[in-house]
Design a protein around this nucleic acid. Structure first.
Lengths: 199, 199
DNA sequence: TGACTAATCGAGGCAGCCTCAGGTTAACTG
DNA sequence: CAGTTAACCTGAGGCTGCCTCGATTAGTCA
């Protein structure tokens, strides 16, 4: 298993009021993003957190840094989940299970997939480090499934993430439920899995 | 083949100067959308067309109506292309070919897929009529391929359009080239096609 | 307690959206 | 051709949201 560095992008502020406001902003941001997508009004978020707009910008100089902070935990869970399933499940099952979780996380709120897809290859974006770690996680699972002969050998990790984010985008724009998402992933798996002997 | 109504959403203005400005706006809009995506500045478009902002709003009361007018031709081509391939090609080949064209059109500019995906099921959107016609076209091709036993019988048209728009979204956000797009569609087809006898 | 400086505040400049009251002009009519 | 009319055009102005920055406040530490 390849090394998955744990990125520390921005240490939290030190002063008590600073820490308090930072947390309040994060809570407000998560709510606002869930409701209005990644382009929710920053001034509303600041107001909701009981803080002036300048304070928001002090903690999060760009929208991207706020999104990153609001979604970091979820991505961390995703990365550790990859290690977990790799240990517990058969290769293709592990990959499938992880893909399910990835799609759900990517579509946490409208606009997230776009940001993550961007960050995956664009260093310099706040989310890049976490995305790179996640890329490694996915690639490891893919490689294992390929070694086991369960996934077509010519599929690259980038292609896998293309399929994954496409699925997440569809989920987020159609507000698909559990069943539709499950079905969609099944179709994708069908396309990348090596067929076992037919009837 | 089901009926494909040709919608006439908004007749063009009658007076000469009105028609002239309408056309100029459309040209400017296509350029701007291609360059900046569907959220290009409307004031820039008006200025580029040599017209005041109020004139733009007179012809296109909402951004959606402008997008619709700017992309209607392409959708019409897509619909007639479906009839064409249905006549000329074997069912699965026809479906595949049409999907290729659909993905390319859907990703004409950044933001289009989202609008089309929305319009497909939301009556009351300007693009809905064209989208519905296109839905019919795709469904016809799908049904033919299923009758020929070449595509899994349990795939619905809505699922097909989910896959299609997912592919288009990936193409538009990664600015994928011809090869990547081709590959992506191949993977999708692999997932929905009935496997011919294996080795 | 006083000094230091992190942290906060919010007015203000800017961009883009959209409306509407008033001015202009193409097209038609006698 | 002059008169009439409705279609058309204009752009200032109100609004929302982004982002900055100088003045102010308040934790922290010696």
């Amino acid at each position: 298993m390849a090394e998955t560095p744990v990125p520390q992008i921005a240490q939290r502020p030190k002063r008590a009021d600073g820490r308090r406001n930072y947390d309040a902003l994060l809570v407000a941001a998560r709510t606002a993003f869930a409701e209005h997508g990644s382009d929710a009004s920053l001034e509303d978020i600041a107001h909701e957190a009981g803080v002036a707009i300048g304070t928001l910008y002090r903690h999060f100089p760009t929208r991207a840094t706020l999104v990153e902070a609001a979604t970091r935990d979820g991505l961390e869970v995703l990365v550790s989940h990859a290690r977990d399933v790799a240990d517990r499940l058969a290769p293709l099952t592990a990959l499938t299970d992880w893909m399910r979780h990835a799609v759900v996380h990517f579509s946490t709120f409208r606009g997230l997939v776009g940001i993550l897809a961007q960050s995956m290859y664009d260093e310099g974006t706040p989310s890049h480090a976490m995305c790179a770690a996640m890329h490694t996680s996915g690639a490891d699972l893919l490689r294992a499934a390929q070694r086991a002969g369960e996934v077509r050998a010519d599929l690259t990790a980038d292609e896998l993430f293309g399929l994954l984010s496409g699925a997440a985008w569809v989920r987020e724009t159609t507000r698909a439920g559990k069943d539709e998402t499950e079905r969609f992933i099944e179709l994708v798996i069908e396309g990348i899995a090596v067929r076992t002997a037919g009837p």
